[in-house]
């Protein structure tokens, strides 16, 4: 019960943050160069009727804060306005671009978890050995390799050079074809993330393995499996889970660029195209969506930390 209450409190805090972010997102419209009407008109002909319709829709004759209020209430009801380019509802534009992004994200997540965590643990346990040192070196290059630059190299080597993988687009909606098309983008996106998670896991494992409780468990004959799972892995989990929030924000920016490099019709590419076209409603919608995502993931991380560590739970109980 106390935990639910704590999470509710967190939730309220996050709603406050969302309101602040939404205000900033809304202000984008006013901040973009040129008049708001001109921005919203886009390439449409500027007839009095259209202008009046836009003014009515966005309540442009009202004070700024009232405009914001109208925008926010419709946003909460799922109405983020209409795309200037296509006239479609922003939500449906975003929805049509989301699948590719989510598939890319899932693919990347699998790579990060399957490669990053085991490698990090192995390096941390065998600290100072050859494997650890080569992994540590590789993570530094991985952290310094931005997804878009790496993407170009992958395209050249595996696409143009070796011809193993397609270099552009998401392919058909068939699962195999999709995986085939998303492999290079996922690798480009995952490299930096894997490097991050390897470092975090390695540091956490090294820290845990040096703790007295590991030595104490070993001296009293607790089995090796139990020490590794019940002691090392569980105590490592907390810092690693906490790093998930960090991973997410790196991944979000990375997705935008990687989708652009590989011409994937996902939300990231939509963002870049919308920015180029000054399609402010779509940009606002995407930015708002990202803010909700960040807040939600942070909430999940908090909940996970509560589940893992009794100390945080006790803090909740007071």
């Amino acid at each position: 019960m106390a935990i639910v209450l704590f999470l509710l409190k967190r939730l309220v805090g996050m709603v406050v943050i969302l309101i602040i972010v939404s205000f900033l997102v809304f202000s984008l419209l006013a901040l973009s160069p040129g008049s708001v009407v001109a921005t919203l008109l886009g390439t449409q002909p500027s007839t009095p009727q259209v202008v009046a319709a836009i003014k009515a829709q966005y309540h442009l004759n009202d004070p700024f804060l009232v405009q914001y209020w109208h925008w926010l209430t419709s946003a909460v009801h799922g109405d983020l306005g209409r795309s200037i380019q296509s006239g479609e509802a922003v939500t449906s534009v975003i929805a049509s671009h989301l699948p590719v992004t989510l598939e890319l994200a899932a693919y990347t997540l699998v790579l990060v978890v399957v490669v990053g965590i085991p490698v990090g643990m192995a390096a941390g346990i065998g600290r100072g050995r050859l494997f650890d040192r080569s992994v540590s070196g590789a993570t530094i290059v991985g952290m310094g390799a931005p997804g878009f630059a790496l993407g170009i190299l992958l395209i050249y080597v595996f696409g143009v050079g070796l011809g193993w993988f397609p270099v552009y687009g998401a392919g058909s909606s068939q699962a195999i074809d999709r995986v085939y098309h998303l492999t290079l983008p996922a690798v480009a996106l995952a490299t930096g993330l894997v490097a991050l998670i390897v470092r975090q896991t390695r540091a956490a494992v090294m820290d845990v393995m040096e703790q007295d409780y590991i030595t104490f468990a070993r001296t009293r004959g607790v089995g090796r499996a139990r020490v590794m799972l019940g002691y090392a892995l569980r105590n490592t989990a907390l810092p690693v889970v906490t790093a998930a929030g960090l991973l997410l924000i790196v991944a979000i920016s990375g997705t935008v660029l990687v989708e652009t490099v590989f011409s994937l019709p996902g939300a990231g590419q939509l963002m870049v195209q919308a920015i180029e076209a000054k399609n402010v409603p779509v940009v606002q919608g995407l930015a708002f969506f990202v803010a909700v995502l960040v807040v939600a993931v942070n909430l999940l991380v908090d909940a996970a930390a509560l589940m893992i560590d009794p100390r945080t739970r006790a803090g909740v109980r007071g």
């Binding site: 160069p33 870049v272 940009v283």
Partner: peptide, 8 residues
Amino acid sequence: IVVLGVVG
């Protein structure tokens, strides 16, 4: 990206 893209 958003700020520089939209606001310039």
